[in-house]
Write a protein that binds this DNA or RNA. Structure first.
Lengths: 165, 165
DNA sequence: CCAAATTGTTAGACATGTCTAACAATTATA
DNA sequence: TATAATTGTTAGACATGTCTAACAATTTGG
């Protein structure tokens, strides 16, 4: 694959593992190889092998047949991935009106490759839409109308907007 | 890498090669291995090897030391990639106000992983913003204000918008 | 038109990340 | 608690896509 990792220092795969461990280990409980394997849809040896790499980088604590836990550094990376994931999901679901499942799937892919700048802007965009009643609250509904009917809703008339003859 | 190809049948790399060939071969001229290698930032043997694979799939015509051309099928795939690329670039540049270079970079990554549904919606979104003076023409400027000042512009007041007490 | 520069190919190493098969440890249960 | 089921590991194959080194073809310029 041609450079697909943006400027982050983890690969998409390793970010997925960290994310999964964070989510599984969330409520105090410790993640298990089997769970990670199920969540990510890979076989257990793939997990073992990933854990080895992540341990070497001190992102994960893992002892043979034992517990799996993020180190503070690992947790930091995981939080970062998760926050990208969530912001992207919100964008697809709330701004574009895409079903939750597809929104999540796309977030899962894009979270690994989007630039920090675009990520930040996208997050702000969602905030803005949520916060601004004009550009915001009305926006999604007008947008929905457009999606459904293929043409602009009434209140999108050119009234008050200059237009070159 | 954990499944990163969405539901398309080409890998991100192969899509990149097809895209590059289409762009280079555009004005009738034929693409060269060296050019492709330069455009994609890989060494020539990587190109040769990719061309071999794409030839086997009848997406590219390539004879040793000779011309490189997309077949009709290859062209179709390439057009599709390019249209995703362009729509994404427009979104980042026009809707989010991101500089052209970063917009292109992100488009280059995301074009390979985004779902058809999200792609379609994103394209419609950009169209809508461009077409709808209210949700549209005014939107980017209000959004810019928000980006710069961190708070809502005047005309985003709640005037006329119901709000639960 | 021939030598030098450039371009292209082949062969094979390497990195990443997946998998299966075989075996080992742990846990659950009869 | 012995045994069966489950979970986890190791070893090694495999796929993709990159690279370098060496060589071959083509193109260019003296």
């Amino acid at each position: 694959m041609v450079k697909q990792e943006a400027q982050r220092d983890q690969t998409a795969s390793m970010e997925d593992y960290l994310e999964a461990i964070a989510k599984l280990g969330g409520a105090r409980k410790i993640a298990r190889v089997k769970q990670i394997s199920d969540v990510l849809g890979v076989r257990m040896p793939s997990v073992t092998s990933a854990l080895k790499k992540l341990s070497e980088q001190e992102l994960v604590e893992h002892e043979r047949y034992g517990h799996i836990k993020l180190t503070p550094q690992g947790d930091k990376v995981a939080r970062d991935v998760i926050s990208r994931h969530e912001a992207l999901t919100r964008f697809f679901a709330q701004a574009l009106g895409i079903n939750r499942e597809t929104a999540e799937e796309d977030a899962c892919k894009i979270e690994h490759v989007i630039s920090p700048l675009s990520m930040e802007r996208l997050a702000k965009f969602v905030e803005f839409i949520g916060a601004c009643p004009l550009g915001g609250a009305n926006f999604p509904s007008r947008y929905e109308y457009y999606l459904e009917h293929g043409e602009l809703p009434q209140d999108c008339s050119n009234k008050g907007v200059k237009k070159k003859k």
